[in-house]
């Protein structure tokens, strides 16, 4: 009757909007991380169009921030996370993943902005005369002598941002969330395949005269491999949950996890990528990328809502 975990602990009952938040944040981090790693350490291969991933990160990061604010009970006080009004000091609680994550997001946002300016310069878009120095600075940071250092630091903060979304969930008393340390891992892997899938879609729809084909194929290769990693990680995650595995495998959540995430969101896309002739190369790429996104969204729904709805 008074089982501690079942009767005493409370679910935070985070609103449904948090699923979109985690999903969008993951795409922004994953797309950026893979892009900067390839730009920095991809060697002298054809990386045409890769910089367009920066548009995705720059478009999604503000949406992420907005959704983060919308899930607060007191939305108008969102600045309290960064500024301690009571004491008039900067607000940073190193023990709180949410506090630390807010700052990581801001630093990541600076890198995303620099990347965005670089992409604009590369594509010769929105070239305002008053901002020429900024465009040059962004280009220098990407192609100058310290490019690898700059991109590595960017990769570090994008990775930290992607990871924090999981640490946030793990640092809690809700049994299923703290039963395993693998939620950040699951989030990060999913962030990479969803982020790269969005980049693939963008490149497909902005590909003129096939000049981006090689970049698309290279990115698709990454998704193929990481899908396998994602399936393996989901299985490890469920086993690691132990007695709490039923919070994500029972009833509707089980159907969504195995059917929606693993089946439709990972295995079908993998099949389409391995056998592109089934739908034609372009259609297979588009369809598989969309399914990966659907799977990534459902994964976050199951891992967040399953344990919360148990209480």
């Amino acid at each position: 009757m008074y089982n501690y975990e079942l009767t005493q602990l409370k679910s935070p009952d985070f609103p449904f909007i948090i699923i979109f938040d985690l999903f969008i944040g993951g795409i922004a981090a994953g797309a950026f991380l893979v892009t900067v790693l390839l730009l920095a350490f991809g060697g002298k291969i054809n990386k045409a169009g890769l910089h367009r991933a920066y548009y995705i990160t720059m478009a999604l990061l503000p949406v992420y921030g907005l959704l983060l604010i919308l899930k607060l009970e007191h939305k108008e006080r969102f600045i309290n996370v960064l500024w301690q009004i009571r004491d008039g000091t900067i607000m940073l609680n190193l023990q709180s993943p949410m506090s630390l994550g807010a700052w990581v997001m801001n630093v990541f946002g600076v890198f995303a902005l620099v990347g965005f300016l670089y992409a604009l310069k590369k594509d010769n878009l929105l070239q305002f005369s008053w901002a020429q120095k900024l465009y040059h600075l962004a280009t220098w940071l990407h192609e100058g002598p310290i490019a690898k250092v700059f991109l590595s630091i960017g990769a570090f903060f994008s990775a930290w941002f992607g990871v924090y979304l999981g640490i946030l969930v793990t640092t809690s008393h809700l049994p299923a969330w703290n039963a395993t340390p693998f939620i950040p891992t699951l989030w990060m892997i999913s962030a990479v395949i969803t982020g790269v899938s969005v980049v693939i879609l963008l490149l497909i729809f902005t590909n003129r005269s096939s000049q981006l084909n090689e970049s698309i194929q290279r990115l698709d290769n990454i998704v193929k491999s990481v899908i396998v990693l994602n399936i393996a990680m989901i299985i490890v995650f469920v086993f690691a949950l132990g007695q709490w595995s039923e919070t994500v495998t029972r009833g509707m959540f089980g159907v969504l996890l195995w059917g929606g995430v693993v089946g439709i969101g990972l295995l079908v896309p993998l099949l389409l990528k391995l056998k592109p002739n089934l739908l034609g190369l372009k259609n297979s790429l588009i369809f598989s990328s969309v399914l990966v996104l659907v799977g990534g969204f459902i994964l976050r729904y199951v891992v967040m809502m399953g344990p919360m709805s148990y209480w």
Partner: peptide
């Protein structure tokens, strides 16, 4: 720690795929 592992794994797998 698991995040460090995941970043290492994703990086390695991506590089090998590339």
């Amino acid at each position: 720690w698991s995040s460090v592992f995941s970043l290492f794994a994703v990086g390695l797998v991506s590089l090998l795929s590339f």
